[in-house]
Simulated scan of single mutants.
Amino acid sequence: MKPESIADIKQKLVTITTAEDPYVKSLREDSRAGVQTALKQFDRKLEKQVALLKKRQEMSQFEQQAYKEGYQLIAGIDEVGRGPLAGPVISAAVILPKDCDILGLNDSKQLSEAKRNQLFDEINQKAVAIGIGLVDQTEIDAINIYQASKKAMMLAVEQLSKTPDYLLVDAMTLPMETAQQSLIKGDARSISIAAASIIAKVTRDRLMKEYSLEYPFYGFERNAGYGTKEHLLALEEHGITPIHRLTFAPVKNYVK
């Protein structure tokens, strides 16, 4: 009988989720180089899956503790955009389902743009509720970036379609009556805050790409308003735009 083709073997391995599967065990006896290469790829995929499952379990500890204490709707909250010279600060609040099965959630800064976009879509599909809070550059200049970040977070919570009974907040305590926990580097420690970090960053990056069409010299589609060399040179040559933060150095040097 003609041996099974390598292509067919790879196709079958895609659907198998354990190394103990009888079919996988039988392939271990197949000495063909192509089969052994396919098995190595399969083993690496399983190792990655195990690592992602372990990471998700580690990052669910704060949510699980809140569930044990009787809370039901736990919102993770994070903001993006404190440091840029232009554009708003944006916050997101995300309530994930109790049995959240999203793998790969992490601090948005640690993820590639492609991975952020993929997770952004998955979070939007699976989240119980998502809220977005935006505070623009004019208000940032008026009340300072710390207060603006806090306000954006509160707005995000208010925008949720379901009222949370517990908040997990990245490095901030909010003046709200809802029970809450502030976590330093929470976007790398809590799946809910990580989800909020991804929603906030993708939302803000896309907004800054839209602004780049209106203000093409500053590289907003690449730097999201941060003070890159390209951005600073454009400030020198073209001056400030209506979306620049006038109280931030060196932007304030160009205010007439």
Rank of each mutant, 00 (worst) to 15 (best):
E210K: 14
V135L: 11
A33P: 08
A224D: 10
G83H: 02
D78Q: 06
A196F: 03
N124Y: 06
K185A: 05
E139K: 11
K25Q: 12
Q125D: 13
R28T: 11
L213R: 15
G104W: 07
A224L: 01
V89M: 06
P216Q: 08
P22D: 05
G225N: 09
M176T: 09
M176H: 01
S149N: 10
Q57F: 15
G219I: 09
P97C: 04
H244Q: 04
A200M: 04
A66M: 02
D170S: 02
N223A: 07
K68V: 12
G227K: 12
S149H: 07
E79D: 11
C100L: 09
N144D: 10
L160D: 02
N253Y: 14
L13W: 06
E214R: 14
S192D: 03
A156F: 09
Q61Y: 07
L232N: 09
A142C: 06
G87P: 12
E47C: 04
S108W: 11
L134K: 15
Q159S: 12
I140R: 09
V14N: 07
K10P: 06
I191N: 15
A195F: 06
E79V: 07
L103Q: 10
Q61C: 13
E122G: 11
R189K: 13
I140E: 00
L111E: 10
L233K: 15
P97D: 12
S161I: 11
D205L: 03
E122C: 12
A51M: 14
K151C: 01
G131V: 05
A93M: 01
I6G: 06
I74V: 02
I74Y: 04
Q181D: 03
A148V: 12
L53Q: 13
D165S: 03
V80I: 10
A127S: 12
V24A: 07
S108L: 04
T203P: 08
A196S: 10
Q11H: 15
R56M: 14
Y226R: 10
V80S: 13
K68F: 08
R56N: 13
I77Q: 02
R28W: 15
I198R: 00
K68A: 15
K185V: 00
L85S: 03
D30W: 12
A75Y: 00
L85E: 01
R56V: 05
A86H: 12
